[in-house]
Amino acid sequence: MFLHADNLTVERGARPVISALSFTAKAGEALLLVGPNGAGKTTLIRTLAGFIRPSSGAVALKGDSGDRDVAQCCHYVGHLTGVKANLTVTQNLAFWGAYLAEDASGRDRLASRVEDALETFGLSRLSDFPAGLLSAGQKRRLGLARLCVATRPIWLLDEPTVSLDTASTELLSRLIKTHVSGGGIVIAATHLPLGLDEPTVLRLGANPASSGPEARA
């Protein structure tokens, strides 16, 4: 499976944020989107997830994905965590596990997978806590734990390390490495190198109209 963006141009408010961008992310590859604020990292991730329609060009998924589009194959982790303040930590994660499961096999042993994910993210001690009482970093960890309870080949992560401490950032980069080595695709907008060995870096320019984004392997 690989994700291919072809000649992508995205406009926000009649201003081109991304112009004529082409790149390919293969299975087993981590693609880091870097660039200054306003370079279009979030715009690109939201376009890949299908929230924003590009004004020209297309995003396509090729290989063994059947006729599914990127949105149906991806985990989207944006600036918001998708955590309900009035549910407990376990209930939050169990809901996403059941809701994002594609078939009955995805729901097998959901409870134990939720437990494992909480353990991984160091939240088991808080499992019966209302999620509204968590700190910003703990909420972010709970949001990221979604990646572990439902299997999706593509991870689209928009600034996933915001409000995470050093240990959690390392944990996230370990998870990304595991996912990539298992044949997944990770596309992450980030300011940190995330400690990945050989990530592909896609540099987005602050002013795409004049310089144009430069892709670098």
Binding site: A49, A71, Y76, H79, L80, G82, W96
Partner: peptide, 12 residues
């Protein structure tokens, strides 16, 4: 507000 809707858009 809490981003759940964005995740629902990408759900099966």
């Amino acid at each position: 507000e809490d981003g759940s809707l964005e995740v629902m858009v990408t759900a099966p």
